[in-house]
């Protein structure tokens, strides 16, 4: 774990869903590595802890309140970044939701909701970010996928399909944007200890951990470290990749 570095010095980054879990860790770590981090949250109080980092890290945290499914609000946020910074170097599409149900019990409403947040909003944010990144002819877009997006998982037909979509859109965008030097990669976590993981209940958590070669859940910081690599110039020749952060989980 890197506690601080200057790998992201002078980089302007936007992290969606930064109020807790992986997004919170990514925003915190990016700021510790010198970035100007635009942290997205839905409610004003939700970014309090992140904002308290200002003055205590080499970078900075700037709040951006909007729901990622609200295209007009997302566009306004992107305009704000353009006005204040004149550029965007990194977008982390992290905001996501999970709704599990067995086949036969999946409501249309849940299907829509999951795809709105996990897929449509990701494509929306990507299109907006590309507007800024094209001007500067560089950029890195990091999408949070999941190991279930490639392997599937019982009870997760909708969620796994949404993450599968994230993987394929990542690969397509990488191909389309390579000539503009905009890199697009996905991080595919396995089991990470956040509210999302805890929402499945203790028994299922144990079951899941038994499938992991390293025999423990990962931490949000461990996912964030992979994001630092993809956001930084250490990965300038890496695009269209899906990087697993799963402690050797077998599904």
């Amino acid at each position: 774990m890197i506690s601080s570095c200057d790998l992201l010095k002078n980089k302007v980054c936007l992290v969606t869903g930064a109020s807790r879990g992986i997004g919170y860790a990514v925003a915190k770590r990016f700021a510790a590595c010198g970035a100007a981090v635009y942290a997205n949250g839905r409610r004003e109080e939700s970014l309090k802890e992140l904002l308290s980092l200002n003055g205590n890290c080499s970078g900075s945290v700037i709040p951006l309140y909007f729901d990622v499914t609200d295209s007009a609000a997302a566009k306004k946020a992107m305009m704000q970044i353009k006005k204040e910074q004149g550029k965007l170097d990194v977008l982390v599409n992290n905001a996501g939701i999970m709704k599990d149900a067995l086949i036969g019990m999946i409501s249309k409403e849940d299907m829509h909701q999951v795809f709105e947040v996990n897929v449509f909003a990701v494509m929306d944010m990507l299109q907006l970010a590309v507007k800024l990144m094209s001007r500067q002819n560089s950029g890195s877009i990091i999408n949070l996928a999941s190991i279930v997006g490639t392997n599937g998982n019982r009870g997760q037909m909708v969620y796994s399909a949404s993450k599968g979509a994230v993987i394929s859109l990542t690969k397509t965008a990488a191909k389309e944007l390579a000539s503009r030097h905009i890199r697009v990669n996905a991080v595919a976590p396995g089991v990470i200890d956040t509210d999302m993981f805890r929402s499945i209940g203790e028994e299922k958590m144990k079951e899941k951990i038994n499938l992991i070669g390293m025999n423990r859940a990962g931490t949000p910081e461990e996912v964030a470290d992979t994001c630092i690599y993809l956001a930084s110039d250490l990965s300038v020749y890496v695009t269209g990749q899906v990087i697993g952060v799963d402690g050797c989980e077998v599904i």
Binding site: M78, M79, K82, L128, K131, R135
Partner: peptide, 18 residues
């Protein structure tokens, strides 16, 4: 087309809707 959109957005400091 995308170059034109970028040029218009730059010239007038706007972001056009899809």
């Amino acid at each position: 087309h995308m170059n034109l959109v970028a040029a218009l957005e730059e010239a007038f400091d706007i972001m056009m809707d899809t």
